[in-house]
């Protein structure tokens, strides 16, 4: 315990983990959000493509 107190009297340079945490969290959240939006975009585009194909098949039934 006394060592811990002695450390604290020096300049607050022992704060680097907090600094790292703040930047890491922010970057991680941005990345995850972009991935989430682009993933959903792709899924929906796929669904649209499938529905369009299903509609085309209904209109021109061929060799079913």
């Amino acid at each position: 315990m006394p060592d811990l107190i002695a450390l604290q009297i020096e300049l607050p340079s022992s704060n680097l983990p907090w600094l790292f945490a703040a930047f890491a969290v922010s970057w991680a959240v941005f990345f995850l959000y972009v991935i989430y939006v682009t993933r959903r975009q792709q899924e929906m585009q796929n669904q649209i493509r499938q529905l369009r194909r299903a509609m085309e098949q209904q209109e021109t039934p061929e060799g079913d």
Binding site: M1, L4, I5, Q8, I9, P12, S14, N15
Partner: peptide, 9 residues
């Protein structure tokens, strides 16, 4: 208890 970092600033 343990004092905050900036106590003596």
């Amino acid at each position: 208890g343990v004092l905050p970092d900036l106590f003596f600033n």
